[in-house]
Design a protein around this nucleic acid. Structure first.
Lengths: 333, 333
DNA sequence: CTGAAAGCGCTTACAG
DNA sequence: CTGAAAGCGCTTACAG
């Protein structure tokens, strides 16, 4: 049997209420009493039972982070940042891999895991943003990623249209004219939103829009990027630049370019999105949109915790993550 | 108020015991009763309260995975595999980032998180293997990584000596004679064990052992690999091959080689360890030791679950993860 | 098979 | 400030 609160109380010669007060940092405890209790806790190596506490309080100090896959570098880095941010606030993060399956995402939205978790940070991929707005979740939820139209949840994301506009404009500014886009068919609205910024930049520069240069692909991984790049190279008029909707696609595209012996950025310039570590170390290093992941993590956690601690009635909030365009070798020699 | 077991019982017209029996798949329930209960559960959208259940049963079906950092690709891939393996067995994995801090690792060993988790899979980095053997952990623990001498815990790992021997022998077999090693000072015994296999291979081939070619470095990240490679290139006699003790080091070393314009494998051949996805897509693609991560995940989880379900008395087990040497472009043109 | 009841270890009104 | 007691929602002997 593990040691219980009552054991601590007995040893310290106080009531269980007093021990509980000390543990939960309530006021009105004399320094003397506190010291006695703390000595007893140390002597008995007492650890509060998390299940009992959360059963009684109706709060566990656990939150879930639902992401498509934790082995994907962007999500691994994001998960690490969110775990750290939560830990600083005394919260533990449960990571849930939905593996891009609609069923798993539905489970998340249905408020799974019984009553254990206090809230969810959700990065959807198959579930259309519009649907999320109507899903019945009992628990507070913060959405990551593309903005759902008329959604009802708090939301944190990069302004993907503007960022994609900036990325494309950068390619134009270094003299590129046939600029392809890879990842146009991406999940949960990402592809559509980034394409919007891409097209907008072409239009602003007076460049023609060639549908053949928009590669839908099926996923957002290296192999999708490699395959899309091969398609582009098979085209009659080769592109002189590619904007990939995430870094993994860009890394795949770079691999294809290396395989066929084309130079980067000489023959083809490449821009990514996410700023994962692989891109920084790649040779040539990858120009990319760099969202501030620490900012994102901190604010997503804070938003959720505010919602959990009561003000469920507050107006929905929409936070925009700061980003920079990191110009590296794939666009700058 | 969420719906409770008793609500379900009332609606189904049975006792709470019966509902509990249905939920927990106990025998002796007629199909008719089961159907009634399941209908009530569905109608009320009932979800068992995890805290109450684990308080009562003394078991939560949660396990912890303690790793140095989840943003590191090897650990991200391992974490993903372990989460999947556990999920198939109805277990949820809590990922704990120790960030290579001794204090955080100590917390893990002290059996943190109150009584919530049923056991721990632990991949130490700062804690010396020997120390783990004597730590007082109340909960079942499975160790990943280098084998602790005389440890008392179940253990799953690649035979690093043999794998390093194979990696080095492969470099010798393609005609290399000045073979450097990067990562010799790595945490928790990894560096020492892999160096052992490296030296053994040199000796077996009758090659001299040059201490200047053994780079200790400080960490196992890309920047450590890049810096170590720069040190090697500053040496009077340049190495013609490098065995990096993980893929991240190798990727960093490759970046340095690209920066100075040396060809791989022409001038310098490179081998890594871990087989992370970045290495497969890198140009040139990285030859590496590829441990079977799915095997590792499955067996680590099974070992822990066996321990949790009772046979705590069984003899300590030591499992060796299968691996292959994946020969790619950094050693094969 | 079912019902009534105890108890897992906390927190929290309630009365002092 | 403290003590005695109820109750969070389950599971599980116990008696039928």
């Amino acid at each position: 049997m593990a040691t219980r609160l009552s054991d601590v109380a007995a040893r310290a010669g106080v009531s269980v209420k007093t021990v509980s007060n000390v543990i939960n940092d309530y006021p009105h405890i004399t320094a003397h009493t506190r010291a006695k209790v703390e000595a007893a806790i140390a002597a008995l190596d007492y650890k509060p039972n998390v299940s009992a506490r959360s059963l009684r309080k109706g709060r566990s100090d656990f939150i879930a982070l639902a992401i498509p896959e934790m082995a994907s570098p962007y999500f691994a880095e994001l998960g690490a940042a969110i775990s750290r941010a939560a830990k600083r606030r005394g919260i533990t993060v449960l990571i849930d891999q939905t593996e891009g399956e609609a069923a798993a995402e539905k489970l998340v939205l249905d408020g799974m895991r019984g009553q254990l978790i206090d809230g969810i940070i959700f990065s959807p991929i198959t579930t259309a943003p519009a649907k999320i707005g109507t899903a019945g979740t009992a628990k507070p939820l913060v959405l990551l990623g593309e903005r759902p139209a008329g959604g009802t949840f708090d939301h944190v994301a990069v302004d993907s249209v503007q960022a994609s506009y900036d990325a494309t404009t950068h390619l134009i500014s270094i003299g590129r004219r046939r600029i392809a886009a890879i990842g146009v068919g991406g999940g949960a609205g990402t592809g559509a939103v980034r394409r919007k910024g891409y097209r907008k930049a072409l239009k602003a520069a007076g460049l023609p829009h060639d549908p053949a240069l928009e590669l839908a692909g099926t996923g957002y991984h290296r192999d999708d990027g490699a395959a899309s790049m091969r398609e582009l190279l098979a085209l009659p008029g080769r592109p002189d630049a590619v904007f990939c909707f995430n870094d993994l696609l860009a890394l795949g595209a770079l691999r294809t370019l290396a395989d066929v012996g084309l130079s980067v950025p000489g023959d083809v310039a490449v821009v990514g999105f996410d700023d994962i570590e692989d891109g920084r170390y790649h040779s040539p290093s990858l120009t990319t949109i760099s969202p501030d992941k620490e900012w994102l993590a901190r604010n997503a956690v804070d938003l959720l915790l505010e919602r959990i601690s009561g003000n469920g009635e507050a107006a929905r909030r929409d936070l925009t993550v700061p980003y920079t365009l990191e110009i590296r070798e794939t666009t700058a020699g």
